[in-house]
Amino acid sequence: MTNPAKKRLSLHLRIWRQSRTDEAGEFRDYQLQDISPDMSFLEMLDILNQQLIEQGEAPVAFDHDCREGICGTCGMMINGQAHGPDHETTTCQLHMRHFNDGDTIIIEPWRARAFPVLRDLIVNRSAFDRIIQAGGYVSIKTGQAPEGNANLIPQQHQEGSLDAAACIGCGACVAACKNASAMLFTAAKVSHFVQLPQGAPERTKRVLAMINQHDEEGFGACTNTSECEAACPAAVSVSHIARLNREYLKAMLTATD
């Protein structure tokens, strides 16, 4: 029942190769035959790498880890789309059944000033960690917590919060954005906390600090084109950016320090 009509694929790959950050990169062309449509995209690259090693050419470096769509490690531009053509899907969960025999596939790293290329398809996303460091937390120490049910949280608030907290931090939103803005990533964290009573004490400080860090990292401004939402494998909605904007405006008007 796994789409028996689809035959095995021959593919032409154009892949960005760059040996280190401070060296120029280039596209190189590769041919692959006999690819099963049930393979994942990364398994297809594994096969390419086996071939390259056997031929004595350096394998294509790409980030990946859990290969089940949750860790956020993998990510590449596939034919100009972050994580490729399938909806709400990370690169590791993209399967070759979404491609046709004879296709040319162009594979590039995330392109953003704040995400320098380390090698081939691997970029440095530490800027995301620094945005979280600026305020993406509740200031509570281990051992200080009140009883779990001390705060009643309406189910719709908890669900709304989880919708935002589902962000996997992959960076697809940045890569898909013409401004290389990380507003969806930042908004997801702000929105996660602002919908919960635990986030209330620091809501003003948090949004200002995180936006400030976002800008300092060199991410661009949001112009509401929603490409980020279309690319997001975790289905994080741009409505969280709207919530962030409201929070930011409120904070600008009410911040006392």
Binding site: V138, H192, Q198
Partner: peptide
């Protein structure tokens, strides 16, 4: 084990809730 749940809730982990707002 109970302290862990308290700690995580305090950090803002959005655990599933009943309609009344309890865990």
């Amino acid at each position: 084990s109970g302290n862990i749940i308290d700690q995580c809730v305090a950090q803002g982990v959005p655990f599933a809730r009943e309609y009344g707002g309890t865990l």
